[in-house]
Design a protein around this nucleic acid. Structure first.
Lengths: 130, 130
DNA sequence: ATCGTTATTGAGATATAATATCATTAAAGA
DNA sequence: TCTTTAATGATATTATATCTCAATAACGAT
């Protein structure tokens, strides 16, 4: 049969849009569970995955951290503080031809990429004098 | 006191260099344990971490996959097949000024980055006709 | 509106990667 | 050789994500 609309899925999408930041599956779950206490963690994970596959939200795979989801759909880079773990958007144009090169050179298909810079954010620098 | 030389650490370094490919901690462990059966998994993890901090090997943090280590020290990009999971080197110059930009714009320190492209490798394309 | 099919859910189990704990071992300076 | 303590090995624990499966509910057909 066809794909079905559920309140759980709608809630997940709504929550990601509402929170307006980079949210992990657990953060989305914790937010929803306040109003809708019997939602399951697995359901949130599944719907985040589906919504990102449908292109309604953007999945960001974080190395050695929980994946997070972004309500902003335009591809853009991120930077993650290695001290506090917070993710920020990077104000830099997305380099589209990078992936084209790789495709041509190496015979891959469906090539995509993301960049997550690492560094110490201004707040943590101030706190630890670095 | 100071850092100590151990046969375990030497074995880990030697094994990464010997295998000449992108290896996970578990792969290094499995290789060493053949010849040196009482080495512990934790020891391998610890030494890989230390060696990468000392710059003797290179750590690659793989999103949603085991971290792997590279005997090639020069920074370079990678591409990972989403079907078989294999990692390949990408033949493309490392863009150094990218990280400088981010540092300047956003007030971060110790900025670094890696790119792990995703895609379907030629072998998997052939196998699945995509 | 009710029924039947089956996609989706919720609860819990399981998988995987990595780190933490801690008694024991062994490297290296005295 | 002795002493100090960094590092090890075994195990437990953490964190993230996926899988399993009976129960539920979405939706097309009647």
């Amino acid at each position: 049969m066809t794909e079905r609309k559920t309140i759980q899925c709608a809630l997940v999408l709504e929550t990601v849009k509402k929170l307006k930041r980079h949210v992990t599956a657990d953060e989305v779950f914790e937010e929803i569970v306040k109003e809708y206490p019997n939602i399951g963690r697995g359901t949130v994970y599944r719907n985040l995955q589906r919504l990102s596959e449908k292109g309604e939200i953007r999945k960001i795979e974080v190395p050695k951290g929980a994946d997070c989801y972004d309500h902003i759909l335009q591809p853009h880079y991120h930077i993650r503080c290695t001290k506090c773990g917070e993710m920020f958007d990077v104000d830099m144009p997305y380099i589209k031809n990078l992936e084209e090169n790789v495709k041509d050179f190496h015979g891959f298909s469906e090539v995509s990429y993301d960049i997550i810079f690492k560094g110490i954010c201004p707040a943590c620098r101030a706190k630890n004098k670095i």
